[in-house]
């Protein structure tokens, strides 16, 4: 049944409406085998709805989703046995121990008892909970639950993992460990991973490709480099500049340079909006005039600013229509 498609996930004009509101609007998402894909978007952008449709837990209003050649709403069991899902803010049965919870998952996946035992031990060790398995989940901290959630996914040994907001509510150290684990799961085990998040810089380091989802629409998709290219080639760039001495004249000098369209002071930092990359010309000019640049950076190079940029653009667009 699995087709020879290059993509593990492919959606075609996928839509989900709740009344008048479109949670997911003509989504065309493609995720290749063996990559880490970051689905980014602000809260309420339709990330979780998309994931639920991929798992067959929600029926699409129209359009189609395919996971490894299976339609989740027609063959939910094939899809669900292949996909490990870590819901956002994952929950467990508090009155059961961590191990018992995992055994339940294993039983639902029809994994034999001794095989389950082996996998659970391994999974708990891998997520850093080797000794907590015998404790009741009610005593677990938020971070431990999240780890147990990942162990729960690993017990299933899926070829494809979906994580919904995995970094939410974990301390910074925990996030680093989690990201390292995700990297490991992708590179060592060769699993495909889809991460949804609204915190870009956190998952930037592990994602091979990202898609930006705003108001149910995928407004950009590709590698981070590709997104940068798209951004740099656009009509205007933003430069951050600090220089000594940072007096008023600095602004005048910058304004005189060809290509600068707008200057704003942000405390002691200058924000230059320009129509092309003027960095070289700017530095030469400054030095010639006796100024020394101490900070110069092109906004939009970090994923965060790419995201902000796209997000703002969309917001403006929707702001006008509504």
């Amino acid at each position: 049944m699995a087709t020879g498609s290059n993509y593990l996930i492919e959606t075609v004009d996928l839509c989900k409406r709740y009344g008048d509101r479109a949670a997911v609007d003509n989504l065309n998402l493609q995720v290749e085998h063996g990559i880490v894909y970051g689905l980014l978007g602000p809260n309420g952008a339709g990330k979780t709805t998309t994931i639920l449709m991929l798992l067959g837990l929600t029926e699409p209003t129209s359009g189609k989703a395919m996971v490894n050649g299976y339609d989740p709403s027609r063959n939910p069991l094939q899809v669900k046995s292949m996909v490990g899902y870590l819901p956002d803010n994952v929950g467990f049965y508090d009155e059961m121990t961590g191990e018992e919870n995992l055994f339940y998952t294993a039983a639902l996946n029809r994994i034999a008892q001794d095989e389950a035992q082996r996998r659970i031990k391994q999974a708990l060790k891998r997520v850093g909970l080797p000794d907590a398995g015998h404790r009741k989940v009610g005593e677990y901290s938020r971070g431990m639950r999240q780890r147990l959630g990942i162990a729960d996914v690993l017990v299933k040994d899926p070829k494809f993992i979906i994580m919904d907001e995995p970094t939410l509510g974990i301390d910074p150290e925990g996030i680093q460990e989690l990201l390292a684990l995700i990297k490991d799961l992708a590179k060592e085990d060769g699993r495909t991973i889809l991460i949804s998040s609204h915190l870009l810089h956190q998952i930037q380091q592990v994602c091979d490709k990202v898609g930006i989802l705003v108001q149910g629409k995928l407004i950009a998709s590709g590698t981070i480099d590709e997104l940068e290219q798209q951004l740099v080639s656009q009509e205007h760039l933003e430069l951050e500049l600090k220089a000594v001495p940072g007096d008023e004249k600095l602004g005048d000098i910058c304004a005189a340079i060809d290509g600068v369209s707008k200057i704003t002071w942000n405390n002691d930092m200058l924000l230059l909006e320009c129509s092309r990359d003027i960095r070289e010309a700017l530095v030469k000019e400054l030095i010639a005039k006796g100024y020394c640049p101490t900070h110069l950076s092109l906004r939009g190079v970090s994923l965060d600013s790419i995201y902000l940029r796209y997000f703002h653009k969309e917001e403006k667009y929707y702001g006008q229509s509504s």
């Binding site: 837990l57 939910p76 899902y85 819901p87 803010n89 929950g91 508090d94 998952t105 639902l108």
Partner: peptide, 14 residues
Amino acid sequence: DRRTLSRILSQPIY
């Protein structure tokens, strides 16, 4: 409430 529903239903059962 316990947020277990989606986790359980994402297992291969109807």
